[in-house]
Design a protein around this nucleic acid. Structure first.
Lengths: 203, 203
DNA sequence: ACCTGAACACCGTTCAAGT
DNA sequence: ACCTGAACACCGTTCAAGT
């Protein structure tokens, strides 16, 4: 396996096991079995390596969304499946999730990261559009509704990842809050549509 | 002025000017004019100092919400004022905002931070409750609706702070997205209520 | 009580040198 | 092309010592 791939995987593993602060170039290099500055031969620096991890994860998230969109399920079920995938990813890999969606130092990292993130967003937008076309969701600019949904779910995942979710704050779980959100959004549509709780979308 | 207060203010200033990574204990100490480890006489360590900054900001945010709630405005106007304050804070002090709501290393920082955050949340919840009582918002568990609103707005602010807001992603601005959200939530209420766009709530 | 200075074990990054 | 080892300028944190 190529060294650069190995570095990316080692960085991802360190993110999962110890959070972002555990990802030192020296630890990554040592995990791969090269000298402490060999990573500089493959990446511009620590931040570029982290960006590469984020790009790889955006790519696989996009693939998951594409698979869901191509399935035979109904639009709302596709959306719930996509959101369940998204939430599960944030819950399982909080450090990588934060890297992708919430790390300010990674934002100005240029074209490749930006375009990988955009592909993920567009795939999600296409699923939302199917819900709108089926009149399950309000008729409004698709990109505005998608952006709001995406940001809301991100907020729920991010607060959960940061340990800000407490029962006293009204979050019994991210999934239930998303259910509530989808219900509220659906009420704005002409045709009402109930059933299929979010909690069951993944079973 | 007491040294501990000075340290907190210096840390906040460094957060504003250079982000979290700029807040080194040595830089903070130097800004205050003490030796590089004098901070340890006032705080357990870097993380405790950052927590103190967050606590101070939660306290002033709570005060702002309390002021708004006590004003003579109508419920929906109060909510929009509170949200405008919240958004403006996130936009002006992104690093401090992220510290409060999105830093995983600060979450397990114990009672004082937690209770300061809870007071802020409860004040916000009380404003949401006024909207529900006035039938502007759906009848449902206040804490669930508040949690969802709070998380959604947080997601919008956080994505904006992280540079993930692009016109192509459907966010023309945080304020407009919040307007859309409030509109969607209001549609779930028995009584419909239009007018008072968010953009104008602050003027 | 509060502070200082030296010291330790880390970092990211650079650079000259090796194969 | 790819890697290594030494070096530099930082960190957070600890500790003994000063007032």
């Amino acid at each position: 396996m190529r060294t650069d791939k190995k570095l990316i995987e080692a960085a991802a593993a360190l993110l999962d096991s110890g959070g972002e602060s555990a990802v030192t170039l020296r630890a990554v290099a040592s995990a791969v079995g090269v000298s402490h500055n060999a990573p500089y031969k493959h990446f511009e620096g620590r931040s570029a390596l982290l960006a590469a991890v984020a790009i790889a994860d955006f790519t696989s998230l996009t693939a998951a969304f594409t698979r869901i969109r191509g399935s035979r399920s109904k639009p709302m079920r596709k959306l719930k499946k996509a959101l369940a995938t998204f939430i599960e990813y944030g819950r399982t890999y909080p450090a990588r999730y934060k890297l992708m969606f919430s790390d300010p130092s990674l934002a100005p990292k240029g074209d490749e990261l930006e375009s990988a993130a955009m592909k993920t967003f567009r795939e999600f937008a296409a699923i939302v559009e199917e819900c709108q076309t089926s009149a399950l969701f309000p008729e409004m600019e698709n990109v505005a509704l998608t952006g709001l949904l995406f940001a809301s779910v991100h907020g729920l995942i991010d607060l959960a990842a940061g340990g800000r979710m407490r029962r006293e704050k009204g979050f019994s779980s991210v999934g239930e809050s998303v259910d509530l959100l989808l219900d509220l959004v659906s009420r704005g549509a002409g045709k009402r549509r109930r059933g299929l709780s979010f909690a069951g979308a993944n079973k």
